[in-house]
Design a protein around this nucleic acid. Sequence first.
DNA 1: AATGAATGAGGATTCATTCAT
DNA 2: GATGAATGAATCCTCATTCAT
Lengths: 202, 202, 202, 202
Amino acid sequence: MPKKTFFNLPKEKRERITNAALAIFNEKGYDHTSINDIVRAAEIPRGSFYQYFESKFDVFFLLVKEAQKKKLEYLGPLLEKRKDEPFFDILMDAFSLALQYLRDYPEYALLGRHMYHAGAEEVLRMVERLDEEGVKNPLYFLKRDQEKGHIRDDIDIRVLARMIYALLGPELLDAFHRGASDEELYHLAKNHIDILKQGAAT
Amino acid sequence: MPKKTFFNLPKEKRERITNAALAIFNEKGYDHTSINDIVRAAEIPRGSFYQYFESKFDVFFLLVKEAQKKKLEYLGPLLEKRKDEPFFDILMDAFSLALQYLRDYPEYALLGRHMYHAGAEEVLRMVERLDEEGVKNPLYFLKRDQEKGHIRDDIDIRVLARMIYALLGPELLDAFHRGASDEELYHLAKNHIDILKQGAAT
Amino acid sequence: MPKKTFFNLPKEKRERITNAALAIFNEKGYDHTSINDIVRAAEIPRGSFYQYFESKFDVFFLLVKEAQKKKLEYLGPLLEKRKDEPFFDILMDAFSLALQYLRDYPEYALLGRHMYHAGAEEVLRMVERLDEEGVKNPLYFLKRDQEKGHIRDDIDIRVLARMIYALLGPELLDAFHRGASDEELYHLAKNHIDILKQGAAT
Amino acid sequence: MPKKTFFNLPKEKRERITNAALAIFNEKGYDHTSINDIVRAAEIPRGSFYQYFESKFDVFFLLVKEAQKKKLEYLGPLLEKRKDEPFFDILMDAFSLALQYLRDYPEYALLGRHMYHAGAEEVLRMVERLDEEGVKNPLYFLKRDQEKGHIRDDIDIRVLARMIYALLGPELLDAFHRGASDEELYHLAKNHIDILKQGAAT
DNA sequence: AATGAATGAGGATTCATTCAT
DNA sequence: GATGAATGAATCCTCATTCAT
């Protein structure tokens, strides 16, 4: 967690710093960004960094949290409004919103990718935790659907949840990063969901 | 590619070096392994490293190639022998062999994981290329199966191929690394394959 | 000397600060204690420190003075009451009281040790001055004793005074710090004094 | 211990480095000498330092060892030649030689003083060990003397040994450093020894 | 008087690579 | 081809002190 000092800063300066950090992380990736890089980009003195943050990870984590919060602003309302429908029925719209989020905040998309491709211990641990949490949501809906009989009884929904999470998370991020068009992305999603739902066999 | 001097080395020394490099990469991860670490572990003089290799990546790539070759020794015969059966029918056995490979060469399992979690540009590029190639094999079989009518016509088999690749590759690696038991891993595979084949919906 | 603002502080706060400083000096030693450490321990704002004190040494010196004053409360009365006896006759009791002082205020014992093992110029100078002063007291008594004929005429009492001071000061501190038992300490003192008085030769 | 690299250096360069380190330690004291100071004084690149030494202490220890060895060259022969005489009889000559050593190598005298006044943990531990060892020699002689009846039976010779060690070591160093003349130093020694032998009381 | 953010110099250490032997 | 010393830029982090509020 950033130190109190950081949150005491005027909002403007705080944003200048986070924006600079975001830019530099996206340019170099987590592992290859040095604190020096950050202070240079944010135009703050070296010493100030340590007055604001505990470590490089501290800043990174802050950014990831912000990205998450923003993503929830897109997906949250949908999940709330259509919480009673079978999960498969809202999946496509969820994907659509997730994509919209990435289009609106491409810098967070890049950050997410860097997060998934960082080598540092602390980031690996964070990702593990994030993934675990990220699976919970689909899992919640799937459990209900299985009880309602929409999902086969002999399926372990945890496995299914992971497959769905992969689509909405890393898979989408990767494809987005490869520069796929909306059309291609929707194609990917449609097929992915279709397979999960109906299976690929004839 | 390692330089010719490396391949001129007596096999014994060559292996001492690769084994040491493998050990140190697995201990520290790609990004946090320095050339210093490698020469120290391999007990070769500092200068020799540059006479054998172009860079750190050069060694890493060599190891990944060896891991790949070894993996093929497990999976190749199966794919050859049962090349005429529907792909879904041999998937479970393929998973089983992939798992056996990991159990026999856990150091390669770890290396694979480190490969997927490295931050360095050059490794990211390599992974991208490896993934692309890795998808080709299932794709080949799936294409044939689709033509034979075993796979729905309206499915984009490239999407399906990626989903299969994910199971046999990163997904398996992660679960293995989390310390999952054989039982758990088979459970994961069975469900994963079942969903891909029949779908999860009732 | 601490600034006047420090002495204007409510006694309670003043003590909170000195106690915190004492604790942190004892934990880290003079040289390795930073002003940062002190303000953190004392929970006072960074800027306040400079309103109270001139420097790190300023606080340290204050503590040493307090320790000295406290020590005098133990030894003073004895020296006063038995000021007419030969010094050798009260030495053992002086040692005993000095030891009692250390047992009662072990934090000052530790401080003393840190004082003797600091590398900073300013502390070295202080120690030199303190030692000089510390020798004066025994010297006063020894001079009188020599005049009275209790001490050999051909002895330079300044040398003897230093040897006595060493016992009651650094030597005691060191042994105390090594965790010597009362028994061991008394044994040390008895022998030390005996030698100074009668000599070790047969 | 310095690394092999250091001992592979041409003697000339090795000495340039140790001499520079000795000079800078003597100028600033152990605690306040930075590795930067050393490399600047020795005119070696920053990186080289770490190729030669493990740490600042590594260099310091090397110097202390050299000083010790040199001291032994002065005292060793005496202790050997007159090993059968009562220890008190050779003490004055030992002091004389120790003094000669300091006069010949004043830079080691200063180093010794800095050693006794360093605050760093690692130096404190070293000093403790050195003191312990340093007491062993007199102890050996005193034990023999006590058995022969030259020393009172009721004296703990360990205490006496420490008192003698103090004279030849820290006490001498301090007085030397205060700039005492030969005359004053001999006076100090004569009195010190006299007291230890015959006692100060009439 | 109280506060705590600002600052950049300076600390230790590691690094990849070159080069002379 | 083998060796390992040389190098200095770059890493992270702490520091004492000032100053505006």
